[in-house]
Design a protein around this nucleic acid. Sequence first.
DNA 1: CACCATGTTCCTTG
DNA 2: CCAAGGAACATGGT
Length: 282
Amino acid sequence: MPELPEVEILVRHLGPVLQGRRIRGVDVRRARVIRPDTPRQFVAALVGAKFLGVRRRAKFLVFQLAKGRREFQLVGHLGMTGRMYLQPAKVALPKHAAVTFDFGRHRFVYEDPRYFGRLSTASAGLDRLGPEPLDDAFTAARLGVALARSRQPIKVKLLDQSALAGVGNIYASEALFLAGISPRRAARSLKSDDLRRLWRSLRRVLREAIQFGSTVPLNWAAGATGDGLFYYGGVPGAADYYEERLRVYDRAGQPCPNCQAPIRRIVQAGRSTFFCPRCQRG
DNA sequence: CACCATGTTCCTTG
DNA sequence: CCAAGGAACATGGT
């Protein structure tokens, strides 16, 4: 499900849905996703706690909870395929429900077919994160600092969460396309002009995606996949919103929206990169 | 059967 | 110590 924009949209959705709800019980159905706590510690910490709010840090969801006067955090990550949603208690659980929180008439479900995500009451993973690309404090100069000294291809470096937090495989390709920068260039080779264009493109691409997800009707619950809305679950009949949302990602062989040259797919650090060989030269 | 997939972490190599 | 590359994790879609 996630890169920064998808997590942001999910967090905005979950805030009002969870606020004030008290956890009556926790069912850990796949122990692997509870890390680094043990499932036993995890359940003990959460049962009886109340949800106060949710925020996003990079691709993490940070839930604020209270148990009596004591406040603490629940940190979640959706991996590649995680989803989170509230459902009526009588509705059947999805096949890959990893953890469920019982609220009485409703339950909060974390499902994840590949189980790459995780939940923790320790704030593990939140350290070692780079700057938030949409923060006011994030400037082109800061982007330069994040990329300095790295000989890695810029596309690969953009996925390094300790350099810049929240960008994933899709929006890395999208931002480099908008900036007109080859994904193969060494990160440290970007000049201040390149940095400024990349900075603007990153913010534009992420903001556009958040805007898109905020205006389209979404189906958060189970089973909403493969409907042309990418990993947002689409409401039936609303699939056309997807048109043209992504400019190069997953469009190998299709014409570049700028120059009509065929979009290329290459593999960098084991992951697909999509770019226009004409608009994005070395 | 083959290959691909929104992400991170661990191990190895230099 | 660090940087970089690759495998591993687990399941589903085409």
